[in-house]
């Protein structure tokens, strides 16, 4: 039986394959970009406030920093306690156009040994975890030039 694919958070990303993008919002008055998305008020204190339009974020950016999680994170992170813990890397990525640093998990198989500050990475669709009916989808960062 195939699982339903459901985003772990609604409205944070869209598309598939090379068309996959994180979704933020941009203030139409001052141009500030927000991720996670602001829906009602621009947070720039010098801005009178404008409409906030949905905007896809740049696909590629550079590693601001990275780390990993060698121990099983607590709930509400979901992992199977029956299985041995498999560490995954976390990457903070600076997007040049938006001037914002966005944290994400690295694509499966990418370890801290594969990463360096300043390295180019791209956003790719990923699966956070699966249960009987649902594949919970998310975004991953992956060094450019690496194909899954």
């Amino acid at each position: 039986m195939s699982r339903t694919r459901t985003p772990v958070v609604d409205g944070w990303f869209t598309g598939a394959g090379d068309g996959f993008r994180l979704l933020g919002t941009r203030c139409t008055a001052c141009g500030s970009v927000f991720f996670p998305r602001e829906e009602t008020h621009c947070r720039n204190p010098g801005c009178a406030g404008g409409a906030l339009d949905e905007v896809p974020l740049s696909r590629r950016g550079r590693v601001w920093s990275f780390t990993d999680s060698r121990y099983r994170p607590p709930s509400p992170y979901v992992s199977d306690p029956e299985l041995p813990w498999e560490p995954y890397a976390l990457i903070a990525v600076e997007l040049e156009a938006e001037r914002i640093v966005v944290l994400g998990q690295a694509a499966p198989g990418v370890t801290v040994a594969d990463l360096a500050v300043g390295m180019e990475v791209e956003v790719v669709p990923g699966v956070l975890h699966e249960d009987a009916e649902t594949a919970w989808t998310t975004w991953h960062w992956r060094p450019t030039g690496v194909r899954a």
Binding site: T67, D68, S69, P74, Y77, S79, L90, V117
Partner: peptide, 18 residues
């Protein structure tokens, strides 16, 4: 926690690597 499993030590790790 839900989306990234980002515990407090992972943030400390990011700052240290930086």
């Amino acid at each position: 926690f839900r989306v990234l499993g980002a515990t407090n030590p992972t943030y400390f790790g990011l700052y240290a690597r930086r």
